[in-house]
Design a protein around this nucleic acid. Structure first.
Length: 298
DNA sequence: GATGCGTGGCA
DNA sequence: TTGCCAAGCAT
């Protein structure tokens, strides 16, 4: 399917809206790319995977101050990396980022790759992150689809309140919205994400200032609730994830206070669950067992 | 395609 | 308070 006049009009208004309304975020500033290059974008995208923007910003600055290049991070130990990750959540991302840095050094001469297949081959990088780096760091033309983009497409294009579960077809939907020019396509990618993050929210949509409101299928239909096929998040209280988080928090705390790990492992109501959490952390490489003692991995 | 995987703010 | 939500990825 080729570009329709209606769609062209929509994306054109998106670009001007973005240039006037985009938030001033660190990784969008020209000096950020000058100082840290594509590596800075890659690190920001790792941290932004499922972690809110406001929590990422201070951690990103500290991380890049300590490890401003893939070569610098590649020389760190897993323990340093997991500790620096702190409370960002999903700490396996820290290990993946560390391994990605080592592979960039080993296989790409320390330069963050530009090609999507090369990016996809790095640990912790999937369809979203690979294209986000290629587009926002290198200016190439690819569809970038995250949870915000999916929601905006579901509403503006398909007239549904909520997107269907993530699918590779989402990339095709987004590709159809991209203008031919590389730089403009990057702006449209960013604008769709920005719309979902600001006006077109999961809980609430503010349509009056939206550049897509005049062509939005969901708006035209009167905001029907529709079917919600989103995956429900499992309860966190009392979960294995909470137990893993408690153990890892204790190990980070042990490092900071130079205490033996077992002295700071919190009492856990369910010892079986605590041991299962420790075993799974060891299996993930996030924790190391040595002489009946636990520690962050060397 | 469905699950497991952290953490904290907000309604 | 409880549940929802957040620039996803690997298996």
């Amino acid at each position: 399917m080729q570009a329709s006049p209606t769609r062209s009009a929509s994306t054109a208004s998106l670009g001007s809206w973005y240039r006037e309304n985009a938030r001033d975020l660190p990784w969008r500033r020209p000096e950020f790319l000058v100082e840290f290059g594509a590596w800075g974008i890659l690190v920001s995208e790792f941290m932004l995977q499922q972690t809110p923007v406001a929590r990422v910003i201070p951690h990103l600055k500290a991380w890049l101050a300590r490890w401003p290049s893939p070569a610098a991070l590649a020389q760190a130990t897993p323990a340093e990396v997991v500790h620096q990750w702190a409370n960002l959540g999903y700490p396996r991302r820290a290990l993946w980022l560390h391994r990605a840095a080592q592979e960039i050094v080993a296989r790409h001469s320390g330069d963050t790759p530009r090609d999507v297949p090369a990016l996809l081959a790095l640990p912790g990088i999937g369809d979203y992150t690979a294209r986000a780096v290629a587009v926002f760091a290198f200016g190439d033309r690819h569809p970038v689809v995250d949870t915000n983009t999916r929601r905006v497409i579901a509403r503006a294009i398909h007239g549904r309140a909520q997107p269907a579960p993530p699918s590779r077809r989402d990339l095709d939907d987004m590709a159809l919205l991209l203008p031919a020019d590389d730089a403009e396509a990057a702006v449209v990618n960013a604008a769709m994400m920005e719309l979902g993050a600001t006006l077109c929210g999961a809980r609430r949509a503010v349509c009056e200032p939206c550049p897509l409101s005049t062509t939005c299928a969901w708006h035209a239909a009167g905001h029907p609730a529709g079917e919600d096929r989103r995956r429900r998040q499992a309860a966190y209280e009392g979960s294995d994830r909470q137990a893993r988080g408690g153990v890892l928090r204790a190990l980070r705390n042990a490092v900071e206070h130079q205490l033996p790990a077992m002295a700071v492992i919190p009492e856990w109501p369910d010892a079986t669950q605590r041991d299962r959490a420790i075993d799974s952390l060891i299996a993930d490489g996030l924790v190391e067992a040595q002489d009946d003692e636990l520690r962050l991995p060397r």
